[in-house]
Nucleic acid binder design. Structure first.
Lengths: 217, 217
DNA sequence: GGAAGAACGTCGTCGTGGCGACGGTTGATT
DNA sequence: AATCAACCGTCGCCACGACGACGTTCTTCC
């Protein structure tokens, strides 16, 4: 379902610099959330945007059996701004996965402040539009590609410094919007080609270059 | 290729109101283009954004054999702002199809003006983010849907007041990123169900409600 | 009015990927 | 140590749609 996966979470979406933050600090509130608690829920009126200071936050859509994790974002990411600026309800839910500290920007405090500092407003605009363009471009890239290259692409982006990815095949399948079986088959091929090693809930990238080649098939 | 088709052209993307325009009129220039001339070309440095005043403009990507029309937009649409704000080159080309009048906003004149009027800046931001969200939502909707519902959806949106759509099957296929044969088959089924009548380079929607039902299958 | 080109209708073949099923393996819980 | 749930690996079947091919019909331009 969520091909856009990481586009939705927008982990690289950071419209605010340190200097901006200093200016805005007056209209923000640094709050702390325990694991499992919600920053906001899908459908709630969007009264605030959030900037993650530390910890990880899980973005998901739907509830119960239709619950789908869309992304997991960390420090520096901005959440909920689309809904807040757009005057609509939140379009996804955000839940803390561990101890999380976030800045909360209340809408009625933030908007006047933005009006006073057009430069920040402009930067936010630029970041938003850049994201729009990146999303379009990425979707075009991913779209009619084979599951194999999609998986390769995701592994390349999701791997940490040691080349490890700790995701179950089901999670990967959900993120890419394909079936678990297809992911399994793709991983099998990657393994046969020597690009990765697989284990329980864990994948190790052994040949990033080959992975990259396959991703751009 | 261009599943995003109309999202790219963003025909409903109108961040500027009449009042805004009056304020910005000083930094804009109303220019006129003959049919076939270009507003800008893919790859050119993005020094200006455009607001269509009258006439139609064709958006395409690629050149020569890879040229693909991505959208056709008319009065009220804004072009080139993503590239201009993002400091990159234009990501598509824009060509006048008939006599066209557009406002040209030069970057170095517009930016200072926006800094003076944060309200307009904010409105642009909101419009941009809204578009981002709409694109994501739309892609998710369209993506793994059957060709039948994609065609139905497109016809519903593209039909004019008389319910007519003047597009060849090849054009529709390109816009949706599917094969002509599949479009033909889908149209055949729609015809059999009495939702449309088909002719040479032309389709008449006879039952919009049924079309809508099929589109959201 | 005739020729060339574009668009339409239809067929068969083939690859990709979704889905259900089932057994084996790993990790967690007590 | 036993038990249970989650996860992995694999198989077969089936639907959707891409692609090539071919004949027909409609436009357009001499």
């Amino acid at each position: 379902m969520a091909w856009l996966a990481r586009s939705f979470g927008r982990p690289d979406y950071a419209p605010l610099t340190g200097a901006d933050l200093e200016i805005l600090i007056g209209s923000a509130e640094l709050i702390s959330k325990y694991p499992g608690t919600h920053l906001f829920r899908e459908g709630d009126p969007a009264l605030a945007a959030f900037l993650v200071e530390s910890g990880d936050v899980e973005i998901y859509r739907g509830t119960g059996s239709t619950r789908r994790v869309v992304s997991r974002v960390g420090s520096g990411s901005v959440l909920g701004d689309i809904a807040m600026f757009g005057d609509g309800p939140y379009i996804s839910s955000a839940q803390a996965v561990d101890r999380v500290r976030v800045f909360r920007f209340d809408k009625d405090k933030l908007l006047p402040e933005l009006a006073k500092h057009p430069a920040i407003c402009l930067r936010w605009l630029v970041a938003g539009l850049r994201q729009l363009e990146a999303t379009q471009r990425r979707v075009i890239h991913l779209m009619h590609k084979t599951v194999l290259s999609q998986v390769a692409d995701l592994l390349g982006e999701e791997a940490d410094a040691k080349g490890e990815v700790r995701l179950s095949q089901i999670t990967i399948a959900t993120l890419l919007g394909v079936s678990r079986q297809s992911v399994n088959e793709a991983l099998g091929r990657l393994r046969k080609q020597g690009a990765v090693e697989t284990g329980y809930r864990q994948i190790r990238v052994t040949d990033p270059d080959r992975l990259e080649t396959i991703a751009t098939s």
